[in-house]
């Protein structure tokens, strides 16, 4: 016999379970999340966005950018490896151990093992093992630690997104802490933007040609990136002929120029088929500037305890009389 009350109670019970687990459970586990320390640094991550970028988030949301761009790098897992960063002074013992290893980089059966090991000693860091679990990596390090050589555990973040260069690590809950609302997106008709602030988008969105000066100068670089994004927003075909992204001309203002006057320094430099009518210039509005500030603030790249970013092994300072390299 199926009664209304039975259905009501059963449905209420099921609803309560699902709610308690997924909604209440997510609050218990993630609701009190705070900014965390960046690995090997005293800085906290994430920091709230600066005001202009915050306004840009609203422009991004209002125009539905998240229907074509995700903001989420996915990570499959991690593999570990081990390297020697400093063979130390007990070279003979290190060589003995190296000879025991078959997989030392580049060794073929025809090589004289010992001669090859000697050659690798000068080519730091020496990769002992890669693409294995943490226990195996530690096991490979142990005999070298006994010789007094310095070894380091290395790791590599895996996954199609990371292999494609979308970011150095997978996105985690902490990355979205100050996003209201978070916009992880559900479809990639355009590229992922989780790291657009750090990543040169040439692989997906046209050439990113920073001038030589810009590469060495932060301010210049920021200006060039901003200009690139502004032109791309006005009409993506300016930067990439085959782009399928719509332009957003309504984020720009067409202004008449007085004859002989110098135009606005902010005006877009458009040429050829994209050039505005003679006597007119295209100037970005505050919304366009805010949107670009927001895009450049997107960076899921800080190394965190829950998802670290691999860093190059620390090599010993060269023991010559040459001056130390600039940090």
């Amino acid at each position: 016999m199926m009664r209304g009350a039975v259905i009501f109670v059963g449905v209420l019970f099921s609803m309560a379970c699902s709610w308690a687990a997924l909604i209440f459970g997510s609050q218990v586990q993630l609701g009190a999340l705070l900014p965390g320390a960046i690995v090997n640094s005293s800085e906290l991550y994430p920091a709230p966005r600066p005001g202009l970028a915050q306004q840009g988030a609203a422009v991004y949301r209002a125009n539905g950018c998240f229907y074509c761009h995700s903001q989420q790098v996915r990570q499959g897992g991690i593999t570990f490896g081990a390297v020697i960063t400093d063979p130390g002074t007990n070279t003979i013992a290190v060589l003995d151990e190296l000879v025991k290893l078959d997989q030392v980089a580049g060794l073929t059966p025809n090589h004289n093992k010992r001669a090859h090991a000697v050659a690798t000693l000068t080519n730091l860091p020496i990769v002992l093992v890669a693409g294995v679990g943490p226990d195996e990596a530690r096991k490979a390090m142990n005999p070298f630690n006994a010789t007094g050589a310095k070894t380091e555990l290395t790791f590599k973040n895996l996954g199609a997104d990371i292999a494609a260069g979308l970011g150095p690590r997978g996105s985690v809950a902490r990355d979205y802490l100050f996003d209201n609302p978070p916009l992880p997106g559900s479809i990639r008709i355009g590229p992922d933007l989780a790291n657009i602030g750090t990543r040169a988008p040439e692989r997906f969105a046209g050439a990113w040609n920073l001038s030589a000066a810009a590469r060495t100068n932060d301010l210049q670089q920021a200006a060039e990136r901003t200009a690139w994004h502004l032109h791309h927003l006005y009409n993506p075909r300016v930067k990439n002929k085959s782009s399928t992204m719509p332009g957003y001309p309504f984020l720009f203002e067409a202004r008449p120029m007085k004859a002989g006057a110098i135009g606005s320094p902010d005006a877009l430099r458009l040429t050829g088929e994209f050039a505005p009518a003679a006597g007119w210039e295209i100037v970005p509005t505050g919304e366009a500037r805010a949107l670009v500030a927001y895009l450049l603030s997107l960076r899921h790249a800080a190394s965190l305890a829950e998802r670290a970013v691999p860093r190059p092994p620390t090599l010993p300072a060269p023991s010559t009389n040459a001056p130390a390299a600039k940090p």
Binding site: L22, I23, L177, P181
Partner: peptide, 19 residues
Amino acid sequence: WLLHVHPVRGITQSVVNWW
């Protein structure tokens, strides 16, 4: 309630949304 009236923090908003 959890998205408009009293928004929860960060990615838990997305959890509510997906749910």
